[in-house]
Amino acid sequence: MFPELNSILSSSPDSFRSGDFIVLSDRQADASFLIHHYLSFYLRAGCKVCFLGLVQSFSHYSAVSQRLGVSLTQAREKGQLVFLEGLKDSIGVISQEESSQSKLPLSYLRSPGAGLECLFKFVESSVSQNTENEDGEKWGPPVLLIDDLSVLLSLGVSAGAILDFTLYCQATICSELQGNIVILVRREEEDVDDEGSNLLQKGLIHQCSLALHVEGLPTGYCRDIHGQMEVWWRSREDAMYNQRKVFHYKVHDKGASFFARGTSSALL
């Protein structure tokens, strides 16, 4: 969890707005530090978290979260975290018999044209199961994190089917249960005319209430500034409605710092 980002977005684990749909996107840079931020943020806030890790192993997320001061293993044992390990589970889906896997969350691997209904059913059941911790207290509002959704495009699922899936997730988690969603998508290079990822990103931005876009510096590599992040407030309830702000950032070993453009400590 990065306190500086919290102050930019004026939220904290104790008080954050529920019902938010947050889209993280990146181009020629890596926005996964934001996924780690939100994972530790919502676990600290005591939310019931469902994490679809489609691109890394559990131990990777666990090691990063350890540095940020949150234990994923403990959270999983307590029932606070439901982790879908896409890399590990996909082999099972592919090698199993046809008949037994029709209801598995990763069934899209076999029939990408059939849509993501099973994945949604998995998300829905995991946010509604075990809503209490061992002391009998309720977990906070449910949270869905996805890293990253563009992988599904490469696996043959159409952008429209992915947008249907996110619409269902939004309807269930944000509107019905007043929880939050954080989704990471990756964008191809500007000159590559990739219809799918373009459509997916635009469709998600239409749905979302906050968009964070991470990009490399347009002027090239720099040792002290790793890139820039654009914050776009899209919720009409926000005072900052439809405003965009650009910050420079630097990712450290344990956290990240954000600063207004031109105010890097290397310059001043």
Partner: peptide, 9 residues
């Protein structure tokens, strides 16, 4: 049509 526009649930 909102929570379930495709009839999944």
């Amino acid at each position: 049509g909102h929570p379930d526009p495709l009839g999944w649930t």
